[in-house]
Amino acid sequence: MAYAYLFKYIIIGDTVGKSCLLLQFTDKRFQPVHDLTIVEFGARMITIDGKQIKLQIWDTAGQESFRSITRSYYRGAAGALLVYDITRDTFNHLTTWLEDARQHSNSNMVIMLIGNKDLESRREVKKEEGEAFAREHGLIFMETSAKTASNVEEAFINTAKEIYEKIQEGVFDINNEANGIKIGPQHPTTNSTLSGSQGGQQAGGGCC
């Protein structure tokens, strides 16, 4: 399907149900038992400001041993969802994740902090604490539940809105695909390449 923009996201954080979050967003279903992720891909179309936006999302591994693999994904992503599961441990690790993300990503990457409250009964971190952390580090914040689907849409969409606003402000260099943003095929660009315009014709003809 034709889109105005394509954004690349990554989902990072300890093993806190990141895959459930992605599955809820792309397939609208909850699957509690899931194989260990190393990296999985998911995609969905959303609408912002009347424009179709395609989200391509890479769900990464939470385990320490895969941390170096995850690092390869920061540079090319426009948005990151940093997830903890409202227990103390995963909240405490946020700083390390954030340092990693800031170090390896491009400076404009939008980061949204997400408290995934599937484990409400084991909550150790109050919502206010999450908010405070987000404020301190300049992140947007939300508590979601992959189980009940609460706020899941909003989390992905709000991140996209933030990126979209940054594009409108001219912060992103949208002609550099390495930033994780691509202009859709039907968008006329000043320096569109041969391949770009061909892709456009094809995408216009068919639909996925």
């Binding site: 990296v39 041969l194 391949s195």
Partner: peptide
């Protein structure tokens, strides 16, 4: 090596390879 394959794909390999094939 699935992990490397995914990173290479993430780095827009499909787009580039399909472009080269067309060219």
């Amino acid at each position: 090596n699935a992990a490397i394959q995914k990173i290479v794909a993430f780095e827009n390999a499909f787009e580039r390879l399909l472009d080269i094939i067309t060219e």
